[in-house]
Every structure is written in structure tokens, then in C-alpha cells.
Design a protein around this nucleic acid. Sequence first.
DNA 1: CAGGCATAAATTGTCAACAATAATGACCAA
DNA 2: TTGGTCATTATTGTTGACAATTTATGCCTG
Lengths: 234, 234
Amino acid sequence: MPETIPVSTTEDALEPPTLARRAFDSIKSDIIDGELAQGTKIVESDLALKYGISRGPLREAIHRLEQIKLIVRIPHAGSRVVTLDARMMQDIYEAREALEGMAARLAARLMPDNEIASLSALLDQHEAAISETEGKAYFQREGDIDFHYRIAVASQNQWILENLNGELYQLIRMCRRQSGQIPSRAQTALSQHRQIAVAIAQRDEELAELLMRRHISGAWKIVRKILEDQHDSN
Amino acid sequence: MPETIPVSTTEDALEPPTLARRAFDSIKSDIIDGELAQGTKIVESDLALKYGISRGPLREAIHRLEQIKLIVRIPHAGSRVVTLDARMMQDIYEAREALEGMAARLAARLMPDNEIASLSALLDQHEAAISETEGKAYFQREGDIDFHYRIAVASQNQWILENLNGELYQLIRMCRRQSGQIPSRAQTALSQHRQIAVAIAQRDEELAELLMRRHISGAWKIVRKILEDQHDSN
DNA sequence: CAGGCATAAATTGTCAACAATAATGACCAA
DNA sequence: TTGGTCATTATTGTTGACAATTTATGCCTG
């Protein structure tokens, strides 16, 4: 039986649960899940009351959220939940393309054989999940992040891993939520993942990077199309 | 007469000089310039006393320094100035190669003609400065960052610009300081810059990215060589 | 009635004291 | 002497009050 342990995307869960840390996690979830709508004004005293903590730790949480670009802050004027416009989304996808392309290249160079096997097994799971649930694209989305996460880990580059996992993936989730339902891309995404896995298994750095970049820029083109259609209907 | 206005690398100098902001800038300079040695233990009360402010704003400054990876912090245990080892340097150069490669590609697509002309003029200045000062490599280093900064701006990608300018370039400076004197690379760097500028002027995205990546990975190879020699002599 | 200035309210920035946690060192026992 | 345990100390985490700044409100003037 192949390994079937899903890799959690929330890495640092073992940190001491300081108040600031907990507030950070809570607010982050609220923003990503859309409970705190984009553009919402953040008032420190209100949130502190809501979470039952003082303004000190809450401020620290806000600063951390600002650093991962979920909140924009203007000195003396307050902070708001970020509003993702098309411009910012493009920036994010471009950066992701560059970093994940590099990650794929490094993975092809460094990923241990057993992890490559495990990666392949993960894709088998995905295939099974797709044919079972048919249209359940949501499942595929989580799996999608799982696949990309594994490659980021395999790159053995801490900087790239932290920036992808700690910042870009969160924003990507918000992009997806915002652009509504993305048409059944599960099949094509899976086959692209397979090609990338093969390239890594063959230790073909060049190809792995190329395929990963095409995969991501393709995803962006689809999202952009949706955004344009939304905009046209206004 | 061509434009000779040097572009400052410290962008957001117009922010209200809040205490936290000032402390952040001061400590950042101290770390980059080596006044606060790598690995130094950071004690909040001491630093607060040193800068004549309270612990509140100082904590904010420390958190921001942690986010740009100049400080590492362990909850309840305190924080230290980062110690750059070979592993981390490699991570940084790999990330930089990916991001600046993408930036060069985007610059080739988007940079306005007059800015391209200005970029070329900047390289003329550098050439003059090199032949004048001969061995003054330091001058060239600042110019080097200036060149790369302009391309990051020309990419029109805010995420890439902020990460390069706000984080990676600072760390690169520390790398350079640590690896001591780098042998007269001014000439070869300049000629590589010229090639990149030409590729951008010809709107050759592919070539611009390729040359930029070679340029950076070449720089890393030299730095790594120096580090290995330092290590061997122990 | 419109526009600008002054005042008032709301919100963020800063501070000093208190509580909780981890590092230090002394003491005791094997 | 060494190893472990406990008290002490130093340092970080948290809090509520105060100061500075911005935004909102309403009045006055043209």
C-alpha cells in the first residue's frame, strides 16, 4: 500500500499558542473564508473586544497579517482587509510562476526517489477522487495545493517554501473564491501534474520548470478570462 | 545630457516617522552594516533603552525585522540577529534568480522606451565610474543594485518589487559583506548588464530572462567559491 | 445655499506596570 | 565529581491608561 498520509499545509501548528498567534490564525481564516469581506475597515478596539484580548497582541496579529498582504495598513489612518483587483492577482500569479518554476527545477534535482513515488501515489488518489466524486472540484482544489506544496518542500529552499506557503497560496485561495466557480479543470490539471511528476522522476530540470510554468500561467489565463467576463457584464 | 538622477533604493521614506518605523530603520541599518553582529541576542528592554523609546514600538520594529528575515525569533525565548550560513545564502540567490528573471522578462515586455534609454545612460555612467576609480568596487556595487532595482520597477509587478527591494537585496548586501572582498567583477558585471539592456530594448523577453538568470547564478557561483575557500582554510 | 474653518469624536500610537514563561545558578545527593 | 532538582533571576507576553493624530460634525461666512 502506498503512503496515503496527507501533508498538512499548516506547518507551524506547534508554536506556543500565544494570544497574538491565535488572533492571527483566527483573523487569517476569517479573511480567507470571506467572513471578513474584502475592504472591511479593521478597528483595533472592536476586534480586541471580539476576541477577548487586549490591543497589544491584536496589534501584533495585524502587523503579521499586513506582512503576508492580507491587510493593508496606513499609519495613523487604520487598516483594511485587502481588496484583490486584477492587477494584484496578476502580480501574484506571475510571482508564483517564477517561484514554483524554480521549485520544480530544484525538485527534479533533489527530490528523493521515495518521495517521488509518494508524489505519484498522491496523484493516483486524486484520480480516484475525481472519478468518484465526478464534479466535486473543491476536493481537487485542496489536492491541487497539496501537490504544489510537496514540490515546494522538495525544492529544499526555505525562502521559496515560506513565501509560497505562508503568503502566495493564501492569496491564491482568495483569488479562486473571488472568481467564483472555475469550470471542471480537474482533469486537465491532473494530467499536467502527471507530466510534471514524470519530468521530476526523469530528473529533467529544464522540462519540470517549463511544465510547471505553463501549468500556472494556464491557470492564470483562465482566471483572468473569468474576471474579464465578470467585468464585461457590468 | 542624459538623465543622471540616481534612483534611491529606499522607497517609502515619506511615511510618517512613527517611533516604530524609526527604530525599524535604525536597527535594519545596524544589522546590514554589521554593527549588530550576526547571532547577537536581541533584548527588548536594552534596545528600547538604547533608542530611548518604550518596548511597545520596539516590539513592532522587531516583528517587522523578523518578517524580512533579518531577525529570527523564538516565542518566549527571545530573538537574535540572523546568521547567514551557506544554505540560506543559496536559498536567497535561487529565489532572486527566479524573481529577477521574471522581472527581466516583464521589463522587456513593458518598459517604456524612454526608461530603456535612461537605463542605458545609467550603464554609461557606470562605465565612466569604473574607468575613473579603477578598483573602487564599492561604487560599482551600489550601481549594481541600482541597475537591478530599475528592472524590478520596470516589471510593474508590485509583489516582485517589494520582495526584491524590501527583503532580498538587504540579505544580498549582508552576503557580500560576509564574503569579504569580491575580486574585480565590475567589468564583467557591466558587460552582462549591457547585454540584458540590449535584450530588453529589443523586446526579447526570452533572452532577457535567460541573461538575467545567468548573471545572477554566475554571481552566486563566485560567492559560493569564496565561502568554500573560507571554510577550507579552517 | 455652498464652502471652509473650528471644534469634537473616534482611532491609532505610545507608555509604564503587571503576569507568565524560560534561562541561570546554587544546593544536595549519589 | 556529576547529575538532577529547586529557587532565583532575567526576559518576554499582556494589560489598561494616556497622548497624538486623523476623521467627522456643525457652525459660521460669503
